[in-house]
Design a protein around this nucleic acid. Structure first.
Lengths: 192, 192
DNA sequence: ATAAACAACTAACAATCGTTAGTTTTGTAA
DNA sequence: TTACAAAACTAACGATTGTTAGTTGTTTAT
């Protein structure tokens, strides 16, 4: 799509994402966003076209990254548990880098308007690719023979809401996450 | 607290929860809620005192249920994995019975005003009890010796967002959940 | 030094928000 | 049938919403 993103626009997107994370898209006003940047709401429109565009940019931008990475992993000749580990690591990476955008992606996607169909399709494709990896693992005896839908949503639920725990005070740090998330998610809780 | 809840008020709470789930508290107007009940917004005020009260009632009501059940399970003389299984089953039960309220609990709690401190305290207590159960399991060698914080949020993330997957078309049914959730969460994904 | 582009401002708009006041309709008990 | 209470209505309020128009100040390139 477009390439041009001025530094000021980036600031706006960043501050907006932070506010959206805390209170949700609908509860944040243009005046709220402007306040955090020490400017007036009307001045925002020198940089962006609408509140809606702010949300779309934030959400679609990070959703694209997930789609691209999934396509890359899908093509690699790896065993299932290696693919799963790569997916988990990528979720951690993006969450650590941009927890605010992750929150928007998870909580505010339904307020997309023009780009909603595009987003929903991307999300469905991502889940379908994830599901395929699990099913292939089951077929090859590498993954436990349980309902893949439940595995899928267990993994995705945890990965998608990671931003909550990562940004908590006394939350977990990035190193611990990368060290222990794959084992916890893939090998379970109970000692064998 | 209060005991009286007229049938009409229950209808209002139920319809409101459904709307809140779909679009979030802030994006839903009193006129939206009234429309789904074939009435005018002003008429709602014969039954409830404010929009805020609607949210508080929905959220606090279900949060109380979690607190009560946790207190019950905590006291029982069970092994760790049995306690965890009971917690998982209770989450499934409440989600299946009331996915709309579960969505409000997860997404709209930050819009509580008067009852926000009460809610936050309850939530912290719940997590602390959950954490204690895991730590005790580790001490007794029943639970894998990994970071309990990561186990905690893996379990809670999945349980808390279960309503998303349960209410999806082509989502999982209640029976499959009860059959397979505990194993998937506690024993992991990868075949041993 | 000047012009042009950029980015801030003030002021205001139409629409919509939650809520209130006052009135009418509906249902129930005597 | 009448009286009363419950629950709907109409109309409107003040506040706030996203956004626009027009203006002023500030950088930047020539």
């Amino acid at each position: 799509m477009e390439i041009k993103t001025t530094p000021r626009k980036k600031e706006i997107l960043s501050k907006a994402a932070k506010l959206f994370k805390k209170r949700g898209y609908s509860a944040v006003t243009m005046r709220d966003i402007a306040d955090t940047l020490d400017m007036k709401a009307a001045s925002l429109y020198n940089h962006i076209n609408s509140k809606q565009e702010i949300l779309s940019t934030i959400v679609i931008d990070i959703a694209d990254k997930f789609t691209n990475e999934m396509e890359k992993i899908k093509k690699q000749p790896l065993r299932t548990h290696e693919k799963l580990k790569k997916i988990i690591e990528f979720h951690i990476e993006l969450t650590v880098k941009n927890p605010d955008a992750m929150a928007c992606l998870n909580n505010d996607w339904m307020h997309l308007e023009e780009k909603l169909p595009y987003f929903v399709q991307m999300r469905e494709d991502y889940e379908e690719n994830f599901r395929s990896i699990l099913k292939e693992g089951i077929a090859q005896g590498e993954i436990a023979n349980r309902d893949p839908e439940i595995m899928l949503f267990s993994l995705l639920s945890t990965l998608r809401t990671l931003y909550i725990w990562y940004t908590k005070k006394d939350g977990v740090d990035a190193k611990t996450l990368k060290d222990q998330m794959p084992d916890t998610l893939l090998n379970g809780i109970i000692k064998k």
